[in-house]
Design a protein around this nucleic acid. Structure first.
Length: 159
DNA sequence: GCCAACGTTGGC
DNA sequence: GCCAACGTTGGC
């Protein structure tokens, strides 16, 4: 799940009551599908986009499954959608709770190194659909990223 | 229904 | 700030 730290960072999430926040503002049908597939108890990576450097900074847990995104009905919100009706919402959100920060940020550049030339992360949605704000992660990718967390920055995956 | 114009995302 | 990718809009 991507967020621009200038708008909403992992620090902001940590400061929320119960470290929980509705993930509103998703306005892509592709991303909506991913949101709606999330189940309570699922975990997701918190990714800082448009950051220096961009990368994965933490783990969140889905504590409430998809329900109508309140911002689509709020004319003062930048996410307002005049075409959405209360009785027929167009956009959805989930509630996320901070599980933990990673021991170190895993920068996009490092993820890419493990995705090039058929690496373990070669099929990550992050590279294929760069602009998708909520993306699926396979179990294998998830575990591999967590194994990177334990390594020194720039370290090799094996040998 | 096609497609050019335009806006947004997000890495660099 | 630039620009590639890509989604949306609107004329026809």
């Amino acid at each position: 799940m991507k967020s621009e730290p200038d708008v909403f960072s992992i620090d902001d999430l940590a400061a929320r009551p119960d470290q929980t926040e509705p993930w509103d503002g998703v306005r892509s049908h592709q991303a909506k599908k991913v949101l709606q597939s999330m189940r309570r108890g699922d975990q997701a990576f918190f990714y800082h986009s448009n950051a220096k450097p961009p990368g994965i900074v933490g783990i969140v847990e889905i504590v409430r499954e998809a329900y109508p995104d309140h911002s689509q009905f709020d004319s003062s919100s930048k996410y307002y959608d005049a075409s959405a009706k209360e009785e027929a919402p167009k956009w959805f959100m989930v509630d996320c709770r901070l599980v933990r920060r990673l021991a170190r940020q895993i920068p996009l550049e490092e993820l890419k190194q493990h995705g090039s030339s058929g690496g373990p992360l070669a099929d990550m949605a992050l590279f294929k659909y760069g602009r998708l704000s909520v993306q699926p992660v396979t179990r294998q990718q998830w575990e591999y990223v967590l194994s990177l967390e334990q390594q020194q920055p720039g370290g090799k995956s094996s040998s």
